[in-house]
Simulated scan of single mutants.
Amino acid sequence: MSVLKSIGRKYATLNARPWSKSPTGIVLLNMGGPSTIPEVHDFLRRLFSDKDLIPLPFQSLLAPLIARRRTPQIEQQYTDIGGGSPILKYTKYQGTKMAELLDELSPDTAPHKAYVGFRYAQPLVEEVMKEMKEDGVKRAVAFTQYPQYSCSTTGSSLNEVYRRGVKGEAGDVKWSVIDRWGTHEGFIEALAQNIEAALAKFPPTTPRSQITLLFSAHSLPMSVVNRGDPYILEVSSTVAAVMARLGHKNPYRLVWQSQVGPSAWMGMQTSDAIKGLARLGKKDVVVVPVAFTSDHIETLYELDLEYGKEAHELGMTMIRSESLNESPVFIRALADLASKHLKAVTASEKEGEAEYTSVQLGLRCPGCTNETCGKQKEWFAKGGQPEAS
């Protein structure tokens, strides 16, 4: 952390206003979470209203009803983890430190300013657009904080940036996209180090090869999976890379959490896997949040409190590997991703064949019927300029 602090002091003036030139905006996109209890209802209403995330029949009618019905329960869950989600705190920290490193790694595009753009909680993308316009941003990177791509997560956030950006809400900004990075070596290293730290918490008498690693990721409705969404494959690729880094010394499984509603979702569910392992006599487990970049309700409540209680009652020793939160290894990975992206975009522009998005982003799911998704991909591929008025 001392290295990050020294870099922060060295480059503090580069990230403070006023700048000598407009900053390059690095927009960190995520679903977000309510920072306070009073924000819970609006968060749920926005979440259940998003057809990209949770497709529902009669969505405009059902979403407000579901949000209202679930608010008391979810408010209690946020109360139980301290009164709100810490995702904004950690995303701001990660973004600030990333921007400081990025000024050093990519001086040609400095200064850089990190913006947090949440889909369902404050600060919303629409607010970020206004701030960018006030700052005079002319170049921005839509940088998903979902390591593995899904149309329901990264796709939904990019759709929102497109809807706002095409109307010029951020001003005359040229956009590019970092849309997935689930096998980046820095991300894999950060996950692996946290797993190794969790394994070290077991007594020396516990054979390390007998400790099961349960990689837990947010599940998806099978309706999304079956239209060709790449998320399942990409999470699996992350797990494979982590296990290779760890030397395949532990048995492991990839499981799925956070199912909502009665429709079919990807399984098996994390809770069912814990019960199954207990039944099989596998009582020593490390749970790894593999698709999250910081703590929030899915880790602090669902994994720690809900599943932790289940494991304890089953006589298991279950330790969760820490989330990435303030990991300097992870923050450097973010800076490396952004630096290489900016350099690649600049080089492609100089060659007269500008590439603002990855090849993979340009491919719609074979079963996609969302016209906004298609328009969004075309818009970003051209640099995301506002429509002429």
Rank of each mutant, 00 (worst) to 15 (best):
V116F: 02
L101V: 13
K138S: 09
Y146W: 12
L44D: 01
K10C: 08
D284V: 13
S263E: 13
I26L: 14
V225L: 03
M31N: 11
F43Y: 15
G267C: 02
H248P: 04
A67V: 07
K10R: 10
M132H: 12
Q73L: 02
G281W: 09
L214G: 00
A347E: 03
Q76F: 11
I331Q: 08
F330D: 08
L105K: 15
N159K: 15
S35D: 12
W19Q: 08
A240G: 05
T109S: 14
G83W: 01
R332M: 13
Q73T: 09
L47H: 08
T13G: 04
A170C: 12
P107E: 01
D336E: 15
A381S: 13
L124V: 06
E100F: 09
P111A: 02
L65S: 14
E349S: 09
L246E: 00
A344I: 02
V161I: 15
I232N: 07
L334W: 01
A200I: 06
G84P: 07
K130W: 12
G33A: 01
P251A: 00
F380D: 02
M129I: 10
L233Y: 14
S223Y: 02
K340D: 00
A63S: 15
M268I: 10
S348F: 00
P107I: 14
L28P: 09
S2L: 05
P230H: 13
P34V: 11
K133F: 06
I232T: 10
E353S: 08
E131D: 08
G261M: 04
D295M: 10
N226V: 01
L88H: 12
G384C: 06
E234Y: 11
L280T: 12
L62T: 15
V125N: 13
K5Y: 13
C365G: 02
T183L: 03
K382I: 03
Q257K: 05
E39A: 15
S209G: 00
